[in-house]
């Protein structure tokens, strides 16, 4: 059981990294990865929202959705939007400094496809409550890792001489492609299971 939880965590963080091999949450990945410290803080906020969403999705799956399966998408997105709103209010009340530092990125978590993707994958893989939390934590750590790696590389690239036509999105995409290539190496980590 314990090794199963560990496997879910590592798989979500490295082998099936949400950003680099499942293409979830690309908007903040390209949008907010220009500076290392904001990238890291956004990653932390994402971990928090992911875990709460996972708990909420488990509750919805257990008590509401068996009676109305067609409401799945709508109820998930409403839960995510209100969770983000709630997190925003709590942070504002207890830590105004952190609230200021996160700024616009906090509300934008709502439209991060990683969050909705997590709720949907968790449902389709039939994870229980604890497995769901492990999955969410792994996904969040993976997301943060990808964001921080990308931000570090971009800060480096800014200082080097690069031809004008490559600068900008094209360069970021190619860097992401190379990172993703590296993360594919993790697929061999657990032999066949990956």
């Amino acid at each position: 059981m314990d090794s199963n939880l560990l496997w879910i965590f590592v798989s979500a963080a490295l082998v099936n990294n949400f950003t680099l091999s499942m293409f979830l949450g690309l908007c903040p990945f390209f949008g907010v990865s220009a500076r290392l410290d904001t990238a890291f803080r956004l990653g932390l906020a994402n971990i928090f929202v992911l875990i709460i969403t996972s708990l909420a999705a488990s509750a919805l799956n257990a008590w509401v959705l068996p009676y109305a399966p067609y409401l799945r998408l709508i109820s998930f997105i409403l839960v995510i939007a209100s969770t983000v709103q709630f997190v925003e209010m709590v942070i504002k009340r207890f830590s105004p400094a952190l609230f200021k530092a996160l700024g616009i990125f906090l509300p934008l978590i709502t439209t991060n496809c990683a969050i909705l993707g997590l709720a949907l994958f968790q449902t389709s893989r039939e994870y229980g409550v604890i497995e769901g939390v492990a999955f969410a934590a792994g996904a969040g750590v993976g997301l943060t890792l990808a964001l921080v790696l990308m931000a570090g590389l971009r800060e480096e690239a800014e200082l080097s001489t690069i031809p004008g036509i490559v600068r900008g999105t094209a360069m970021n995409l190619i860097i992401a492609g190379l990172l993703s290539l590296g993360f594919m190496g993790f697929a061999g980590l657990f032999g066949q299971a990956a």
């Binding site: 680099l20 091999s21 499942m22 293409f23 004008g164 036509i165 490559v166 900008g168 999105t169 094209a170 360069m171 970021n172 995409l173 190619i174 992401a176 492609g177 190379l178 993703s180 290539l181 594919m184």
Partner: peptide, 22 residues
Amino acid sequence: ILPPGGFLMLGMILLFFNWMQA
């Protein structure tokens, strides 16, 4: 057709457009 290919291909297409523009 694996994940990295998606990033690389889109990157190359954008590069091509930038090159045309330049």
